[in-house]
Simulated assay, not measured.
Amino acid sequence: MAITENEIRIRFAAPATDEARTAIKARLATAAEELALLVHELVPGSREESEAISAVELALWWAQAGVDRRYVPRAKPLAPADAEAACLAAMAEADIASAPGRL
Rank of each mutant, 00 (worst) to 15 (best):
L58C: 14
Q64V: 00
E48C: 12
V72E: 13
V43G: 05
I3W: 03
L37P: 06
A90D: 11
A99I: 07
A26P: 02
E48D: 15
T17A: 08
A81I: 01
A20P: 01
F12P: 00
S46I: 11
A79W: 04
T22I: 06
A52L: 15
A86Q: 07
W62D: 13
P44D: 06
W61D: 15
D18G: 04
A32V: 04
W61P: 11
A26I: 04
D95C: 04
I96F: 07
A85I: 04
E57N: 15
A29G: 02
Y71E: 05
P77T: 01
A63S: 05
R47Q: 14
A36G: 12
I96D: 03
P77A: 01
A85L: 02
E7F: 09
T22Y: 12
A92F: 09
M1L: 07
R21S: 07
E34F: 10
A16E: 15
L37H: 12
A26S: 07
W61G: 14
V67T: 06
L88K: 13
A85F: 01
A2H: 12
W62Q: 10
A14E: 10
A14W: 00
D68T: 09
R9K: 08
A32F: 09
P44G: 01
R27C: 03
A59W: 13
M91H: 10
A14S: 05
I24M: 00
A75C: 08
E5T: 13
R47V: 12
E33M: 11
V39F: 02
W62C: 10
K76P: 05
I96P: 02
P44I: 01
A83L: 08
A29F: 02
E84R: 08
P100V: 10
W61A: 15
R69W: 03
L78N: 00
P100I: 03
V56E: 01
E34K: 14
G66W: 07
R70F: 15
I3T: 05
P44R: 09
A52Y: 12
I24T: 10
Y71N: 05
A2T: 13
F12L: 08
D82Q: 03
A16Y: 09
I24H: 11
E33R: 13
E41T: 06
E33A: 14
E7N: 08
A23R: 13
R47K: 14
Q64A: 10
I8P: 09
A16G: 06
